[in-house]
């Protein structure tokens, strides 16, 4: 057993060492897999703020992942076709600049999370799960029918967007961008959890009535958490679209929401690095077992079952001295 901090440091060190591993083993595709891991981890870190800290079981986080993806897709598509995104009431043109795309993805996702959260956080338990799922399906079917941007076939972007001073077509440099953003998001999430807001959110998960008696509004706390969570997941969506240079309605699907949630449960709900370890295990299994059998998800299911039954603190809990996140 090791301290959770040591385990976290090892996970981060492993991610930093991947380009070196890829170079030594002459396996450049490893970097692409690692980039996918890092991006999915970021989406899950976002959901973990709502789920782990706030106890909000959202089955609609793919909405924000998809919105981030489509924010990238639309802006890049209009930039590559030299057509304006909008002319009335004011002119908005496309862009190939990653920082601008990230900003748009974060704002759009946060705004959507504000609306969805405002409506769905009035419910709880199974109703909350169902209403977030319903929002997800709404966006999914809207994207399918949006023929101007590829509809069901999705939208391809020919060249990866740019970042000042870096060659984003180089897998290592793009990986470095994603890993840096993940590190920033993890730092932010850790600060948030220790802040008075994060503590109050945690307290509201344990007892909303007691939080009200302290003069705090659990609804407002959860709404802010949901918005922050959605914004981070949206950023991950923009990066995911840039990694694949492709966006499609699948990013909005409920399977995507479930996948993000599985990463958290695998790694450890409410654990800072739980989503990261969950993503590492998920992508590794997907790649290795996926080569062996088309039915690799059965093995993932068995692993998930084992984690839920025998390691309630997730893989981080099983490997570290702190068994439960909130214990």
């Amino acid at each position: 057993m090791m301290q959770e901090r040591t385990l976290n440091a090892l996970v981060l060190a492993g991610l930093i060492a991947i380009p070196l591993f890829a170079y030594v083993t002459d396996e450049p595709f490893t970097i692409t897999l690692a980039t996918r891991t890092v991006i999915l981890a970021m989406a899950a870190v976002g959901l973990n703020i709502a789920l782990g800290l706030g106890g909000l079981v959202s089955l609609g986080h793919a909405v924000f992942f998809g919105l981030g993806g489509y924010a990238m897709g639309l802006l890049a598509y209009h930039a590559q076709t030299y057509t304006p995104l909008m002319e009335v009431p004011f002119l908005i043109e496309g862009t190939k600049s990653m920082p601008v795309i990230w900003l748009v993805a974060v704002i759009v996702s946060a705004f959507a999370a504000l609306i969805i959260g405002y409506l769905s956080l009035r419910t709880s338990g199974g109703y909350f799960i169902m209403i977030t799922l319903a929002f997800g399906q709404m966006f999914f079917f809207f994207a399918i029918s949006w023929s101007a941007y590829g509809g069901e076939d999705g939208l391809s972007i020919y060249v990866r967007n740019g970042f000042p001073g870096l060659n984003t077509l180089d897998p290592i440099q793009f990986y470095a961008i994603c890993l840096t953003l993940l590190a920033i998001v993890l730092w932010f999430a850790s600060r948030l959890a220790c802040s008075p807001f994060g503590l109050a959110l945690n307290a509201a998960r344990q007892s909303p009535d007691r939080v009200r008696a302290m003069g705090l509004d659990p609804f407002r706390l959860r709404l802010v958490a949901f918005v922050v969570s959605g914004a981070i997941t949206g950023l991950a969506g923009a990066l995911f679209a840039d990694l694949n240079r492709f966006v499609s309605p699948a990013m909005f699907s409920w399977q995507m929401s479930g996948e993000i949630m599985i990463l958290i449960i695998l790694g450890g709900t409410g654990r800072l690095y739980g989503p990261v370890l969950g993503a590492i295990v998920f992508v590794t299994l997907e790649h290795t077992l996926g080569d062996i059998s088309d039915y690799w998800l059965i093995f993932l299911g068995l692993l998930l079952l084992a984690v839920v039954l025998f390691a309630k603190g997730g893989l981080i809990g099983a490997l570290s001295s702190r068994r439960t996140a909130h214990g």
Binding site: L199, A203, S207, G327
Partner: peptide
């Protein structure tokens, strides 16, 4: 009825005004 999952300092910080 304290917040069982929070430490003493965290229980107090969460309530602080």
């Amino acid at each position: 009825r304290c917040f069982a999952d929070l430490t003493v300092a965290e229980n107090l910080t969460a309530a602080a005004r």
